[in-house]
Design a protein around this nucleic acid. Structure first.
Length: 254
DNA sequence: ATGCCTCAGCTCCTGAGA
């Protein structure tokens, strides 16, 4: 079974690239973030022709998430139960006996800002809910755009970006707290090349210079960990003519 | 230096992203 996550930064703009990528990478599940469209504009037909069912949770202008799958998805849940939120950031479903959570974590903008405080409370809400989900669904994958780096190895300039957004100790504390629930950073289960990032700024030739961050992650539960055979960041779509600023992350389960 | 890209929208500028 293959699962992937990709922040597409507008599904309207990126749909052709998503279809191309799925044709070349026929994964079983693809979690999308930053759709930037409402459900009535979701391209169900084009994806169905490509062989994918879709569960979507859209929103005008910002945010918006979806789960694409070859098999049917059951028990679909939108956002975090118990955490009131007017932004469309999370969608979950059971697919092929695996509980899949696709999430677009808040950006946080700047430490100390109102948006940063929202990010912190959102992270706490997510953790409390995922803790309960793991009891109900031991085979669980939590993947998406986390907007948090684990440590300096995830940052192209750890000194220059120290304590800036995505790199603060508060954010990393919450990320480690998720891990402490019994989850594993799938990419780090394997030896990785240095400077292996999932996002690059559009400005200043960020991708060409590999000035990036690893902020898109796939976390797998204890029960799934023995089944993980590969986890890679696919930088190919970042080389497209009008790319998303994020690259997909792909997980293979036995 | 509060921008450099990119995207959406009450679109010819602004807010947000990260």
């Amino acid at each position: 079974m293959k699962l992937a996550t990709w922040n597409v930064n507008s599904l309207t703009v990126r749909l052709p690239q998503v279809l191309d990528w799925l044709a070349a990478n026929p994964v079983d599940v693809l979690a999308l973030q930053e759709l930037k469209l409402t459900d009535d504009k979701f391209p169900f037909d084009a994806l169905a022709q490509a062989g994918y069912l879709a569960q979507c949770f859209g929103q005008k202008t910002y945010n918006g998430v979806a789960l694409l799958s070859r098999a049917s998805a059951t028990d679909v849940v939108r956002n975090i139960p118990g955490f009131a939120d007017d932004m469309a950031r999370v969608i979950s479903a059971t697919i092929d006996d695996v509980r899949v959570i696709g999430a677009y974590f808040p950006n946080g903008q700047e430490p100390g800002s109102e948006k940063f405080e929202y990010k912190m409370s959102w992270l706490k809400g997510l953790r409390d809910w995922v803790r309960a989900e793991l009891v109900q669904h031991p085979k669980l994958v939590l993947m998406g755009d986390y907007n948090i780096t684990f440590d300096d190895a995830d940052v192209w300039d750890p000194i220059g970006l120290k304590d800036t957004i995505h790199c603060t100790e508060e954010e990393r504390y919450h990320l480690r707290a998720l891990i402490a629930l019994g989850l594993h950073d799938a990419l780090r289960l394997f030896v990785q090349p240095a400077k292996n990032y999932s996002w690059w700024d559009y400005r200043d030739f960020g991708f060409r210079r590999n000035r990036g961050l690893r902020i898109d992650h796939i976390l797998v539960s204890d029960a799934l960990k023995p089944s993980v055979t590969t986890c890679v960041i696919d930088k190919t779509p970042r080389k497209n003519e009008r790319p998303s600023d994020h690259a997909p992350v792909v997980l293979t389960l036995l």
